[in-house]
Amino acid sequence: MNDNEVLVLDVPAVEEARKTAAVQWGLDPRDVDVKVIEEEKSFFGLLGRKLRVEVRPVAPLVLLRGRNILEKLLLLMDLSVTPEITEEGRLNLSGQDAGIIIGKYGETLKSMEFIVNLIARDVDEGEKIYLDSDGYRQRRELSLQRLALAAARKAVRKGKPTYLEPMTSWERRIVHMTLKENSEVETRSVGETPSRKVVVWPLRSGPSSRRR
């Protein structure tokens, strides 16, 4: 974890350090760990003891902020879904309304991811936050691989380029990777987000002979 994500504070009580650090980082008090590194027997008489403590966020800042924003959004949407930080550094949405939060072809999950990134990364340029919902990404990855292979077969059979639906960069990358080793086709992304899509070209009548 980053060095600037440690605060050293002198406080009369641990709870105060927790609150101070949480405010400074834009987190909840539950999101930080406090470790006492020095206990000073009072020279200040009536003020009692003083503690020197180290405070650290319990996970990367951007993920904690993202999780807190998600909790608030899901509450306002009245959905029974709980966001959790995973070992892979993603935010997983789990619960009985997971299907609603994924949406048709994952479009609601994408919207959620987009909004959370806009809000949580506003202040610091942290890493992008990825959302998942109980293995949705893996299922989507498999279906994108099948889609890519089918598009390649179609492009070769018809001798014409096949255009896929608009996709996010993560989805387009899966299509490109799936067909990378396929010598019969070439893939490219065309258009601009959010309508950027993959085109699968058959190589015989492909872009090499048509390129401007």
Partner: peptide, 9 residues
């Protein structure tokens, strides 16, 4: 995206 979240709710 805001629209889709409202609709999901």
């Amino acid at each position: 995206a805001i629209r889709l979240l409202a609709k999901a709710g």
